[in-house]
Nucleic acid binder design. Sequence first.
DNA 1: TTTGTGATGCACT
DNA 2: GTGCATCACAAAA
Length: 188
Amino acid sequence: MDQQFFDRGSVDVARDLIGAELDVSGAGGVIVETEAYEPDEPASHSFRGVTQRNAVMFGPPGHAYVYRSYGIHWCLNFVCRPGSAVLIRALQPVRGIEEMETRRGFSDPLLLCSGPGRLCQALGITIEHNGLSLFAPPFELTLPDASPLIVTGRRIGISQAVDLPWRFGLSGSLHISKKFSGKGGLAP
DNA sequence: TTTGTGATGCACT
DNA sequence: GTGCATCACAAAA
């Protein structure tokens, strides 16, 4: 994968990230759930233009956008075209599992990285990662060999633009944060 | 199984 | 001052 991958709209990137492996300092796993955010819809942080918090969303593609959620958790996004980004919502743990369990203080593998806040806690993501390139340490990102089967649905935890089908998941994965309601099985 | 709520920080209005 | 792109646990049903 290269920079070009992120130089697109977030919906395409979010779909194509399913099945990719994300590691941070040697710990991580397969991305099984993402959400797309675009600058022209009100659920996005970028909807009202550039602010101090969302500045990196308007910077170059292929960088990490990290923000604090509900005062407690961190959330990790991948920046795409200006003002658009993909929220990484869940991983299937693969590497550094013991380390992630320690950071989480939780050993259930189904809850280790299943949710944007949990994922950041498990990988040790903080505001210090905000603005870093995804193509340099501590990040390591690898696309899957074959296109996985993908399901779509409505985004979670938002109050605006709730009908957009911009949530993507790996079909059949038990590591997603919440079940997809539809029948699923949308072709890649 | 679903619903409620406390913990907690800060950007934005 | 308001409202979150949340989580975990408790309680109701």
